[in-house]
Every structure is written in structure tokens, then in C-alpha cells.
Design a protein around this nucleic acid. Structure first.
Lengths: 350, 350
DNA sequence: CTTGCAAATGACACCGGTTTCCCATAACAA
DNA sequence: TTGTTATGGGAAACCGGTGTCATTTGCAAG
């Protein structure tokens, strides 16, 4: 049936390194040197080869490179199950950094509660020979994961709410400072009975945010009874439940700081259900500045941390040496969060 | 410095196909036959090899396979810029289908408005030798993209609000029916002056949803003056703007159908800003059932379409033949959306 | 005009699979 | 018994790059 031995169905089969070598009159190793900017070679040779590459539109085959190098040009995004918007913003940041490079982004959700989690990640890294991974909180807080990455010789960057690792492996926001600023804002408005809805135990971000809150109160000489602290799980529903318990207090707190926007939205929801006017009878501050914060009524005062920029920085830390695009401007490791003032905070009623 | 020629740094270097062949006393081709279930081979041989594979925990190197096969075991998710939650749910569905397979998910955002878009996608598909791609709306509506995929011999599945392609290449929700049901719901409550906030021109989903709305009104013999139709862009802000224009009408509509939840949330926001009570003075219905719908007050009545299941179905259509996991249960191509009744709809005031 | 050394380049094996093609053996028909 | 198929299985080439190491070239010093 087949007439030609190589029926190359489509127009001009992609050129290989051999084609380039032949056209340029050099060996393929020399072409490889041009591609990888490795070794030393004569300017004339380089230019000649670069010209041929340009003319033919040659692009090295990533699969072959991956095989020969024992390392793929893929960046992994390993995360558990946090906020959807956060994951997506992170993806956006990483992808911005990867744009116009040879790297691609591979997404990998894992189950923190599964005992196989570490093995899953290991086989993922090893099998795909990932170039590097970005670890999102909360699993980024697990030191075992970081050690695993080193063990399998995979670059990694951990995202977090505080510095957990050296700058090469860490991109952090300074949540503590941001929470202090937010709490001071409430205090400055005149609030003294301020409730806290914390994040789940075991989360570094939850701990850090709570620390900041308590620090700001202590700083102002305000006593914080245990009853004003309600446990939350970073979910909308847990925010509602925590708010209910706070609302039952006598007297009620005049302001609530929720450790993320989801829970803050829950507080708002619960307040509406009880007919508590916000911000007149109750001020609310959230954290994250997710889209929902600006969409509820009143829009939430919250803390914004630059997720997209952090994602970009994380990716650049990983691919930085591979792409000599930027000179040597070290990517920042710490990003500052800012208080976004909207309508959910007002002075307490007399 | 180096003593051993192969210093294999870590414990037990991963076994290769050669190791398996040696241990099983066969050639590597025979091992390859077992892995790919190709050719015919003796049961004894197969079992022997499978035993060795099990003992050694051998996993074929994806890079080598990709090189030899000229095809990677990667699924691409190509999308433009729609709803974050939608993208993430889609990812979740796809990843569910990919779990426990050798496939990985590669995310690729593109810019619909860029003239290079098609070339970008082409080079992405060709370079990475993608096994298949899932195309999200709105770019899934571009026939040129589908043709491109076929041209480069890459499987594809298009997601959409109506059927745009044959079942092997399409996963659709039936938005039209869902909108009709939602509109009938408003009519059944007694609404007669119902405003529509449409999606952007050129979006198939926008067209389909509007069609359904108009059909339901016509069916009930309700006239729809042009003034009751406001253009939206699927964004929160555009929802606010459209709502404002509708509120200026005399008399005001007693209900508004917004073509997605973002805009519906905008309507709610605008209503609050004007002191219009929802649902007493204004009923609102959205579309998508994104998380925001349940978090605003009152929670939005909306239409839910099973994105996760659709993503799973799309992925299975692509990898279905490669993984003989499921027998031959064809994945459904059309999914039904359902009306979720919450608190934003009530009968109009007399 | 050698010698010496570094820069420039090439030959060839190798990464870990798959494919092509061909052989050996067993089974079966004549 | 011999010829003819099937069928299981192997040798070697190949996919498209990179690593190692040897060789050639260029140029300054002796």
C-alpha cells in the first residue's frame, strides 16, 4: 500500500539537529553547543549556525533533550486544596515567568491527609524528571517535602506566610506585619472588643496571622479573653459557625478579624441572617483579597498579598539560571501585603 | 576525584527496561511487548516479566517513550480567560480522570485577541507532542482551533454551551434548556417585566442563553422590549453597569436574569447601593453556580452545570483508548444543568 | 622553526524506550 | 516424512538530542 518509505504526511517535516548540522556544515555536537551556549566556539561558526536555525525555524525536540539530560523542562505546581482563586493566581504568575521559555507548567493536586502523599509526589517528580516544583501552602510548610525534593534532585520553591527556608527556596509574604496593620486599623477606629476567627491548627499561616493579631492587641494594652477567639477552618461555612458563636457573646464584639476572606464572607452572611448591620454594628476585616471580598455588600476591608508576583518570582527562582534572560537581578523572596480599605469597617457605636 | 565510573548517587538507581529484560531472561523488545500489550507472547513469558516488573517496581521512562513514540503523555488545557473557578473545576475534573494513569496535565493560557494565538497553540502542540488537548470556552468555539488540532494530529475535546462538534470531540452542557427552566421559574412566580443582562457578543454561550431566555418569554406570551436587554461582559463590573441602566427604567423590571453569576452578583451589589430590596423588590437569577452565588446575601438562585464531571468526561474521551481501564462505557457528551433555588427570587410586590 | 597550550570542533557512545525485520521453533496439513 | 504456516522472541537500527574524549587548529613563547 505504502509507496514511499517515509510518507511524511504533512508539509516539511520538522528539521532535526542533523539537518541543521548538515546545512551548516558542522557536526551536530557543535549545533548542540550553540543551542546550549556551552563550550567555546568561534564567532563565525556560531553565527553561521544561528543563521541556519533561523532560516529553518528549527526547534530542538524537548523529548530528546529530556531523555539525554535526564531532566525534563517541566515545572510542577504541587498543591493541596486551598483557595481556588489563589491557585489560579499562582498559576498565572508562574506562567507569566514561563512565557517565552521552553518550560511548561504541570499541575499536581495532592491529598495532604493521605499517607501516600509523599510517595505520590516522589514518583511524580522522579517519573517526570521535573526540572523544579512550586509548593503551595499548606503543604509547602512540610519540611519532609522539601527534603524529598532535594533527595530526588529537583529544584523547589516553597510559598508561605513566613520565611521557612533559605531565600533560594522560599517566597514569602509577611502576613504577620499585615495582620498587625489591620488590627491596628480596627483599634484606631475605636474598637476594643475584637473577635478573632482563626485558621485551622497546624497551618503556619494560621499561626502567623493569629500571632500578629495578638501582638497588635497586646501592643495597645487590650486584653484578649479566650472567648473572643473562635476556631475556623478557612471555609465559608466555618466562618458562619464561628461568627454565630461570637454573636452569642454578651456583650458582642464590635469587630471581627477573620483570618481569610472566605470566613469573613461567612461572618457577613451570618450577620445578615441575624439582622446585624455591617459596618454600623459590626466591623469585619478579612485576609487575602480574593474576588469575593469586593463582591459582597458591604465590600470587605481586607489584606491583599501579591500572589501573582509571588508566583512569578517563584518560577524565576527555579528557571533563573537556565534562562539568562535577566542579568542577575535576584528575585525577591519576601513580599509585602497591604491593607485594602473598603466598606466593612467603621467606628463602633457608642 | 571520581572513583566509580557510575556513582549513582542515591539508593538503587531506577531499573531500566534492560534490567528487566536481563532479570527475566528475555530481550527488551519482549518486555516492551508486555508494557504495551502488543504483539503476541506466551503466557509464561508474560507472567514472568510481569513478576519481575512488580518486584523491581519498574516504571517505563516517559521521556524515552515520548521520544520513541513521537508523542508525549501529556494532556493540555488550553483556555483564554474565563472564570477562575470554572478553570479550576475543569482542572479538577480532568485530573480526576488522569489520576492513576501515566498522563499529566499541562496548563496553557492563551490570548484570544492576539493574532499569534493560533501559531502559539500550534507550536505548543507540536513542540510538546501533546497527546491531546481540552479546549475551554470561549476559544473552544473557534473551528480554526479544532482544525489545527487535527492538522497536527493531536486529539482534542471542546467544551461548550451547545453542541459544536461530533460527540468524540465535544462535551456540552445544555444551557438553553436550563435558561428556559430558570426563566419559567421567574414567570411562574408572577414576574412579567424581566430584564436580561446578556453575555458579550460573539460568545456562543451568551447567544444560547439569550435564546433560551427569549424563547421562554415568547412561550409565555410576554413581550420583551429591547430596553429590557442590557449588554454585559460576564464581569462583575459590567453587571453593575447593566443593572444601573435597568434600574433607571420606568417602571423598573421586577426580576433580572443575568447570564452568569458574576454579573448577577453585580446586580445584587448595585441593588444594595440603591437600597432596592432583594428579593422583595427585585428577583435575581444567575448562571454557573460559582461559589460566589452561595456567599452573597441573599444567596443567588442560579443554574448549576456539572463542570467537574464534564472535565472528567472530556479527559476520558481523550485517553479512553489508551487506558483500557473502563470497558467501553462511552463518556457522555451532553450534560444537563439544573436550577438551584436559593433566596434571590420571590414573587413581585403588587 | 619547533614546542606548548588553549580554543574549536568532531567521532562516537549513550539516554531508554520502540520499530523493523528476520529467525527459530512448534503445530499442522499433505 | 516433508512442506507450510503461525507464533514467540531477538538483533539492531532508530528517535533526537547530549556527554566524553580525542583531534585539529591558532597563536605566543622558546
Amino acid at each position: 500500500m505504502k509507496s514511499a518509505p517515509k510518507p511524511r504526511n504533512k508539509a516539511a517535516a520538522k528539521p532535526t539537529i542533523n539537518d541543521i548540522a548538515r546545512l551548516a556544515g558542522v557536526s551536530k555536537k557543535t549545533v548542540s553547543r550553540v543551542i546550549n551556549r556551552s563550550g567555546s566556539l568561534h564567532d563565525d561558526t556560531r553565527e553561521k549556525i544561528e543563521a541556519v536555525i533561523r532560516e529553518t525555524g528549527y526547534v530542538p525536540n524537548p523529548q530528546a533533550r529530556a531523555l539525554a539530560l535526564g531532566r525534563n523542562f517541566l515545572i510542577g505546581l504541587v498543591h493541596d486544596n486551598p483557595n481556588a482563586q489563589m491557585i489560579l493566581n499562582m498559576q498565572q504568575g508562574i506562567l507569566e515567568a514561563l512565557r517565552d521559555t521552553d518550560f511548561e507548567l504541570v499541575v499536581r493536586p495532592v491529598d495532604r491527609s493521605s499517607p501516600d502523599m509523599l510517595d505520590d509526589v516522589r514518583s511524580f517528580l522522579v517519573r517526570q524528571r521535573l526540572y523544579g516544583v512550586v509548593l503551595l501552602p499548606p503543604i509547602s510548610e512540610m519540611d519532609a517535602l522539601a527534603r524529598l525534593c532535594e533527595e530526588v534532585n529537583c529544584k523547589y520553591v516553597r510559598m508561605g506566610s513566613s520565611v521557612l527556608d533559605d531565600p533560594d527556596h522560599m517566597v514569602a509574604s509577611n502576613d504577620r506585619d499585615a495582620v498587625i496593620e489591620a488590627t491596628r486599623h480596627l483599634i484606631a477606629q475605636g474598637h476594643r472588643r475584637i473577635g478573632l476567627i482563626s485558621g485551622p491548627h497546624g497551618f503556619n499561616s494560621a499561626q502567623v496571622r493569629r500571632d500578629g493579631f495578638e501582638f497588635a492587641l497586646a501592643e495597645a494594652g487590650i486584653k484578649l479573653p479566650r472567648s473572643l477567639i473562635a476556631d475556623g477552618q478557612y471555609t465559608f461555612e466555618s466562618g458562619i459557625a464561628a461568627a454565630e458563636s461570637l454573636f452569642d457573646l454578651q456583650p458582642r464584639p464590635t469587630a471581627i478579624f477573620a483570618c481569610n476572606d472566605e470566613m469573613a464572607a461567612g461572618v457577613l452572611f451570618a450577620a445578615r441572617a441575624r439582622g446585624i448591620a455591617v459596618p454600623e454594628e459590626l466591623s469585619i476585616i478579612g485576609f487575602d483579597d480574593t474576588p469575593i471580598a469586593a463582591r459582597v455588600w458591604p465590600p470587605l476591608t481586607t489584606v491583599r498579598w501579591p500572589i501573582v508576583a509571588m508566583g512569578r518570582s517563584a518560577a524565576l527562582k527555579i528557571i533563573g539560571d537556565a534562562t539568562s534572560v535577566s542579568p542577575e537581578d535576584q528575585e525577591p523572596s519576601t513580599f509585602v501585603s497591604t491593607l485594602v480599605r473598603r466598606g466593612s469597617v467603621a467606628p463602633p457605636m457608642k
